[in-house]
């Protein structure tokens, strides 16, 4: 049997695991929507931000919450490496004729699909209730959003996988993911526009990969006649290169999550 069939079996198994875990599935979609409803409306009505180019804050916040959903999903998906190790099934994977990279590939592709579908679900669930401009048209806008979401999730899967293969405990993994990705969310334009910020914040947002995903999503759905902070070409250039590079790098590193055999 080919490596592709083995990877596909692991992919299916991880997808099924998420579908079976209803609480994870529902919370990963409803939590971002609740943030949109409460934070979006609260800031729109209570603070009345005047610096937004189109729509209200709730509409602005959608792109950031979609990115946040992907970050959470990547963290949850990669934590499955630890669950597999602790439940013992990782031993079965590693005693099979498949290489550890095939195992990683199957599991991480499942993580990419789950993360992308959850992020897309949040975008599509929010769309009817907020004032999106769809400046490239709805279909093109959705396609741009899908492309950005997929690239973002490939990149995040690579980051999470690289970390999971080096960090021994799930607690440590969550800590590092939160430490690395939460600040990155704040400097990405997810919760406030990055143009017009102090230069140090603007610089941080420029070196932050999440900023390019937020920008692409804002351009696809929210913006009206705007070229965005970076522009679609740069957004997809950076996301594409990073997604491929980080994902391949994570696959290339032999994971430490192997059975010690002691």
């Amino acid at each position: 049997m080919s490596a592709a069939a083995a990877a596909s079996a692991l992919f299916t198994r991880d997808i099924r695991a998420v579908v079976k875990s209803r609480s994870q599935l529902y919370s990963s979609i409803f939590t971002p929507l609740l943030i949109l409803v409460f934070l979006g409306n609260g800031v729109s009505e209570g603070l009345a931000p005047a610096n937004l180019t189109a729509g209200n804050f709730t509409a602005y916040l959608v792109a950031g919450v979609v990115v946040m959903t992907s970050v959470f999903s990547a963290t949850f998906s990669s934590a499955s490496y630890y669950r597999d190790r602790d439940s013992g099934i990782l031993r079965m994977f590693l005693s099979s004729p498949q290489s550890p990279r095939v195992i990683l590939l199957g599991k991480s592709l499942a993580g990419v699909l789950i993360g992308a579908l959850q992020a897309l679900a949040v975008l599509l669930a929010a769309a009817p209730f907020v004032e999106f401009e769809w400046q490239y048209g709805v279909i093109t806008g959705v396609l741009i959003a899908i492309a950005a979401i997929v690239l973002l999730n490939v990149m995040l899967a690579g980051v999470a996988q690289a970390l999971a293969s080096r960090i021994q405990t799930m607690q440590g993994f969550h800590l590092v993911m939160n430490l690395a990705l939460f600040p990155a969310l704040f400097f990405s334009g997810a919760f406030f526009p990055v143009d017009g910020l102090p230069i140090w914040l603007e610089l941080m947002s420029r070196v932050n990969p999440l900023s390019y995903a937020v920008d692409a999503l804002e351009l696809a759905a929210y913006a009206d006649g705007s070229e965005g902070f970076f522009g679609l070409a740069l957004d997809f250039g950076v996301l594409g290169v990073l997604a491929v590079a980080v994902y391949l790098l994570a696959l290339a590193r032999v994971p430490r999550l192997t059975y010690s055999g002691k």
């Binding site: 049997m1 069939a5 083995a6 596909s8 079996a9 692991l10 198994r13 099924r16 695991a17 079976k20 875990s21 597999d84 439940s87 013992g88 099934i89 990782l90 031993r91 079965m92 994977f93 005693s95 099979s96 004729p97 498949q98 059975y259």
Partner: peptide, 26 residues
Amino acid sequence: TVFQENASDPMMTVSELLRLAGRLFG
């Protein structure tokens, strides 16, 4: 190989686990 500790996933059914193992082992 039968390991000293079980190598299974408590959230998979018996047949799901064996199907996955079968595909991994060709």
